[in-house]
C-alpha cells in the first residue's frame, strides 16, 4: 500500500483518469484518509473504499487531519508537521464573533456567491462550444 493522504477540501471528486474532464467515480470528504497507488504529474491515484481513481494533488495533504481533536492532539499538532486540526483556529466560531462585531460586513452576499456551482457538464459544454481544446483532456 502506498503513502497515506488526507482530503483537505470539503468535498473531493475521485475520477477515472488524471484530468478534470474524467468521470467522477467516487466522492470523498474533508479529513478522509486515502492510500495512494501512484502519482502522475499533479495527480494521485488513490484507493477510495472499494474503488480507485485519480485526485488532483491540491485536494490532498500528506498530513493527517484530525476532525475532533482532543486536548493532547491539539498540543501535539502545534509542534508537528504531520497533523492538522479541522475546525480550529480561524473557524466558524471566529467568523460568528467577527460578524457580531461587524454588522455591516455582507456575508449574505458571500453566501449567495458560494451558491454559484458549475457542473462538469456545463464546463465541458463551455469548452466545446468555444472551440477550446485544453491540454490534458479531450472535449
Amino acid at each position: 500500500m502506498g503513502e497515506q493522504f488526507s482530503v483537505q477540501v470539503r468535498d473531493g471528486q475521485v475520477r477515472n483518469k488524471p484530468s478534470f474532464l474524467g468521470s467522477v467515480v467516487a466522492t470523498v470528504h474533508y479529513g478522509d484518509r486515502l492510500s495512494s497507488l501512484q502519482v502522475k504529474d499533479s495527480w494521485v491515484e488513490v484507493k477510495a473504499g472499494a474503488t480507485s481513481g485519480w485526485m488532483h494533488i491540491s485536494s490532498l495533504t500528506d498530513k493527517e487531519i484530525i476532525l475532533n481533536a482532543n486536548a493532547q492532539q491539539v498540543k501535539q499538532a502545534a509542534s508537528s508537521d504531520e497533523l492538522a486540526l479541522a475546525g480550529k483556529g480561524f473557524n466558524k466560531q471566529v467568523e460568528s464573533e467577527f460578524r457580531r462585531q461587524n454588522r455591516h460586513a455582507n456575508f449574505a452576499g458571500v453566501d449567495q456567491m458560494e451558491k454559484y456551482r458549475v457542473s462538469q457538464k456545463e464546463m465541458e459544454q463551455f469548452l466545446k462550444e468555444g472551440g477550446l481544446r485544453p491540454q490534458g483532456g479531450t472535449v
Binding site: 502506498g2 503513502e3 493522504f5 483537505q8 502519482v39 499533479s42 494521485v44 491540491s58 490532498l60 500528506d62
Partner: peptide, 9 residues
C-alpha cells in the same frame, strides 16, 4: 508521493 502536500506542490 511522500511528503507532497499542497504547499510542497
Amino acid at each position: 508521493a511522500k511528503n507532497i502536500n499542497r504547499r510542497d506542490f
